[in-house]
Every structure is written in structure tokens, then in C-alpha cells.
Amino acid sequence: MPTRETLRLHAGLVDDMASMLDINLEEAAIGGLVSVDQISEAVLRCTDCPNPQHCQAMLSQAATAQRAPEYCRNQELLHKLMP
């Protein structure tokens, strides 16, 4: 089981990636497009990423993007939620 610190890091990465793709996860959940459980599962999938530092670096440099990176374990979910 990931540590609390790891979960916080990856929850931030999931949220930042969604924001970069112009997705508001809170609004998507309120609107019924995604469940809280699906968001939790996305965070857990993110914890399996072998290179979160690459994601952090990319997110710190890009304000917006058209797609999640190919290596993103949540690419499918995020692309379904894109406006």
C-alpha cells in the first residue's frame, strides 16, 4: 500500500495533469462524468508509474496540452473527460 505522502504526490499529479488538459475533476465528479472511486483508482494507477519525476517536470513546463503523455497510466480516463 502506498504511503500517505506517495498518495498526496500522485493525487496532485493526477489533478495537475487533468488541469493541463482543461479538465476540472471536481466539476466532472459533480456532473456525474466520473465517480470519486474512479478518481481514487486513477491516483492508485498513477502510483504505479515508474517515473513520476518526468511527469512533474513536464507539468512544471507546460500550461496546456492536447493529450496526456503516452506513458500516462490514466491516459484513457483523461481523454474521455476532455472537453
Rank of each mutant, 00 (worst) to 15 (best):
54 H>M: 03
20 M>W: 03
39 I>Q: 07
1 M>P: 14
35 S>E: 09
50 P>E: 06
73 R>G: 04
13 L>V: 12
44 L>W: 06
43 V>N: 11
67 R>A: 04
8 R>G: 11
80 K>Y: 05
45 R>Q: 03
17 M>F: 09
53 Q>L: 12
60 S>Y: 06
16 D>S: 15
49 C>N: 00
65 A>T: 13
43 V>M: 14
20 M>D: 01
14 V>A: 02
26 E>M: 14
65 A>C: 08
77 L>H: 08
50 P>T: 10
72 C>I: 00
32 G>E: 09
53 Q>A: 13
51 N>I: 14
10 H>W: 12
66 Q>E: 14
9 L>Q: 11
68 A>G: 09
49 C>E: 04
33 L>D: 04
63 A>Q: 09
65 A>Y: 00
47 T>G: 04
21 L>I: 12
29 A>G: 03
71 Y>V: 02
1 M>S: 12
36 V>K: 08
6 T>L: 10
59 L>P: 07
10 H>Q: 10
28 A>D: 04
67 R>G: 02
64 T>P: 11
23 I>R: 09
50 P>F: 04
52 P>V: 03
29 A>K: 10
51 N>Q: 15
27 E>N: 06
14 V>M: 04
30 I>T: 13
54 H>W: 01
59 L>E: 04
27 E>F: 04
19 S>F: 14
43 V>Y: 14
18 A>T: 11
72 C>N: 00
35 S>L: 09
22 D>E: 15
47 T>A: 03
40 S>R: 06
77 L>A: 00
50 P>M: 00
7 L>A: 02
6 T>W: 08
25 L>Q: 13
78 L>F: 13
60 S>C: 08
19 S>E: 14
16 D>H: 14
9 L>I: 05
55 C>Y: 07
3 T>F: 08
35 S>Y: 15
21 L>N: 11
37 D>V: 00
60 S>G: 13
2 P>H: 06
10 H>D: 09
73 R>N: 04
21 L>D: 07
51 N>F: 15
16 D>A: 15
4 R>S: 14
41 E>R: 12
37 D>P: 06
78 L>P: 12
49 C>P: 01
73 R>I: 02
75 Q>A: 11
23 I>H: 11
74 N>K: 10
47 T>E: 05
76 E>T: 07
